[in-house]
Amino acid sequence: MNALTQDTSSQNLASYNFAYLDEQTKRMIRRAILKGIAIPGYQVPFASREMPMPYGWGTGGVQVTAAIIGRDDVLKVIDQGADDTTNAVSIRAFFAKTAGVVTTTATPDATIIQTRHRIPETPLTEGQVLVYQVPIPEPLRFLEPRETETRKMHALEEYGLMHVKLYEDIARNGHIATTYAYPVKVEGRYVMDPSPTPKFDNPKMHRSETLQLFGAGREKRIYAIPPHTEVVSLDFEDHPFEIQHFDQPCAMCGAEQVYLDEVVLDDKGGRMFVCSDTHYCESRRADGHCGALLGDEPGLGAEANTRKEAM
């Protein structure tokens, strides 16, 4: 990534195609995306390319974003719910350099949002695209390691194994303990792994107005959920799907019904729970909301900004 940071000369940049990938590769990826949209939840194989970052950094998501991004797009990148982690900052900088696009941390301003885990708390709308970086796309993999067999299971809609996994969860823990990568059935047909999204966000996938694209670089798979698609989390009649509940609001902005991260304050066991979606938390504070920690001193957080990244 260092080669792409601040001091890269404009000559070097000229040797890159728009958004780094060559046009032929982008067309190949777009064909895989279109096929994925046509068959919601189906894993489409694609010829994943080497990207100038290691696997595990979201090369699948980066290739999907590179294939769909245009000059007028506004890009937001999050890791967990945060815009400011190394991974998110690097990917944002990558597209600012290679595509010259405007980047943002503000969810409503973005036309493309690339994410590693979370779906933003601010409801996404028609016209936005959510791109997921996926490490392991195959939901059947953990009980059936043979690729030929899992393909057959998808083709023949043999999904009993998914419930074996949930059964085992209940047998061991008394409840379904899967909290991340919680399997869903898409449009009544394909079982899909939204990995590694927390199950808290599963309901947001259901009939979303936003196009959702999933890219797995190492595993060479792309899949999609088109807008308004039915996405149902698997469960048992006597152990229905539930999202995580937090028994206190965000300590910073007082938000309820949002996904919270635990933050350790000191070595004496002090801790607090704050929004994992940093932009959402900041914009609430900017609007005057405040949680227990901030008392009556709102607006502490940095304001979300949309800017043309310095070249």
Binding site: L143, G160, V164, Y167, E168, A171, D235, F236, E237
Partner: peptide, 23 residues
Amino acid sequence: RMTVSAGANVGERLMAVGNRHYG
């Protein structure tokens, strides 16, 4: 399936044919 419980081993066929009641 050596890595899941005896109960899940026996229950797998039931789940494969659509049984969705854990109890």
